[in-house]
Computed example of a mutant assay.
Amino acid sequence: MSRPSTPFIRGFAYSLLATFALDRVLKLAAITHFFHSDTPQPSRIWPTVTLLQPITRGASGLANNLRSRTQLDYPGHLEHLFICDVHDEVSQKACTSLMAELPDLDAQLLLVDAIQGPIAAKTEKLLAALPRARGEILWFVDDDIALRPDALRIMIPYLFQPQVGAVFGLACYTNWQTLWSSLMSIFVNANALLSYIPLTYLADPFTITGHCFALRREIFQRAGGLTAMEERIDDDHELARRVRHLGLRCVQTPMIYDVNNELSSRTAYTKQMKRWFIFPRQAMAPYLTLREQGVTLLGSITQLIPALLALLALFTWKRPAFQALITSLGLFGAIYALGEICYLQRRTPASRWPLLPIVALLAPLQVLWSLAASPEIEWRGQRWRILRGGKMEVLS
């Protein structure tokens, strides 16, 4: 069989490169417009806020994450609800130490016993805490999140815009301690801005990023809250569906929060990648319309182009393929640097920059592998099977 000619390889490689460049330019334009758009003006009286903070053993940087929430620059009243497992003495100590250090903090520590196993699901913890919440705003934040001081000032005004039901922010990963944590941080920081924000120009967000989101209490109650979610893993996706069923919108805001997620091994990294993409495959995709599926595919498929160019270069060993590959990686790095400098306001350590090409070439292939994998996942010592539609079975 004859090998493809150089003109054909050149045309194919440059077409892929042009597609990748156009995709990046359009997404960068959307991001620039998004962050420079007018933001809602706050009301004269800031509403009271309850921070619902479910905590599970093994959270990275827990003490620092909790402390960041006591340093919020917010004019209104804040109530902190720390929710731990009954047998998780390490997490409980982090909470009680902070409360002892800050006696004026309006904070409670709630202990929850799991229905199955030693660890209560996040939904179980939240259901136990919600009767104690007194704030006009319910702000849900995971245990591996550090909030920046202006987080509430940025996000809460969006809740009082017409037809807005829920609001959420953007993740910035900040753990560079290990090779695997660094790969994960680069993957998220290279893709979060480019994935989430441009999609808002094609369709209203159809889910909530569950790390950190907020609703007005009355909207949360009208939507049914978290009732009948005890056996679901997709509390954020399901809550977004309930909000949209009311005719209200879920809104992406420019509030950026930091995620401290330490991965000690390749196994931990692989398990997390799988978990991230099994969740939407099993729990979100079945509910999406054809248009929403198409928009999601359109926004993500170009991530495969550097890997396709690498394969083209390796199999043909043609100069145009290598030129297109190197240019695509340079473009990947340039957009990554712009995102860090202009929007994320965090810096990748110089020693971790050589990992960028690895992420650009291999992470999209890992995503494809994760999407095709079995629906069994592991998280902090627990094994679950995620059923199509969002329910879960605890395996161990």
Rank of each mutant, 00 (worst) to 15 (best):
P149T: 03
E292I: 05
A373C: 01
F160Y: 14
W276K: 02
T174S: 06
I145R: 10
I256W: 02
V359S: 00
F35D: 00
I278Y: 01
L102M: 14
A13M: 02
D236C: 10
F35W: 00
A166H: 13
G169A: 15
L105E: 07
A268E: 00
R242Q: 05
D106S: 06
A334T: 09
I358A: 06
A120G: 02
A203G: 11
G58T: 00
D150Q: 14
W353F: 03
M155D: 15
L147R: 13
T174I: 04
T50A: 10
W379A: 04
L344I: 09
Q108E: 11
I208A: 01
T56H: 03
L338H: 01
P364F: 00
A146Q: 13
I9A: 03
P103N: 11
P162S: 02
N191W: 06
L297W: 05
P75D: 09
Q221P: 13
R232Y: 12
M1S: 12
T296Y: 12
R244C: 13
L325D: 07
A192V: 14
S396T: 10
L170A: 11
E340C: 07
T209K: 15
D38L: 13
L52M: 10
A94W: 07
R148C: 15
R249Y: 03
Q53Y: 10
H80Q: 12
W139R: 14
Y287S: 11
E124C: 03
G11P: 07
S265P: 02
F160D: 11
T316F: 06
I45N: 13
K318Y: 02
Q252I: 08
G225M: 14
R69M: 13
N260D: 08
A321G: 06
E218Y: 06
L331Q: 09
L298A: 12
S5K: 14
R241L: 12
T348F: 03
Q177W: 03
N65E: 14
P54F: 07
L72P: 09
Q71N: 10
L28Y: 02
G224Q: 13
G76P: 12
T19C: 04
L239R: 03
H87L: 15
P280F: 11
Q272N: 04
H245P: 05
Q293W: 08
Q116I: 07
K122L: 05
F279L: 02
W276M: 03
W176L: 00
I197F: 01
A360Y: 00
Q71L: 15
P47W: 08
T48R: 14
R222T: 09
